[in-house]
């Protein structure tokens, strides 16, 4: 199981062993990561699953789809490494990735 690290805005850190094929959003929600709100349940309509992804050297992650990119252009506090966690699927290449959660979701 790939191990993911979630860092809440207040610095609280949680390591989660995520199931392959699950979305990062669901792995976070199941583990009780509060800052991933995911109001729309992964329909890509709410922007409240936003996080900043840092991959380990060996890791990789597919580029966002055109739809996700369009949504990412609209999140509050967007950064270069912004992603919607409901659109990121857990793969072996994600092992060791770190997800920082912004102060404001939406």
């Amino acid at each position: 199981m790939p191990r993911l690290t979630f860092v809440e805005f207040d610095g609280q850190t949680r390591e989660v062993d995520a199931r392959l094929g699950e979305t990062v959003m669901r792995s976070a929600r199941n583990a009780g990561v509060e800052g991933i709100i995911a109001e729309c349940g992964g329909s890509m309509t709410c922007l409240t699953c936003h996080c900043y992804v840092t991959l380990p050297e060996s890791g990789s992650l597919p580029e966002p789809s055109a739809n996700e990119q369009e949504m990412l252009d609209c999140v509050l506090e967007a950064r270069e490494n912004s992603r919607l966690s409901c659109q990121v699927v857990v793969t072996p290449e994600l092992d060791g990735a770190r997800f920082d959660i912004p102060q404001w979701q939406g």
Partner: peptide
């Protein structure tokens, strides 16, 4: 109050 899920 804004609902949730796809109809949010």
């Amino acid at each position: 109050s804004f609902s949730g899920g796809p109809h949010i």
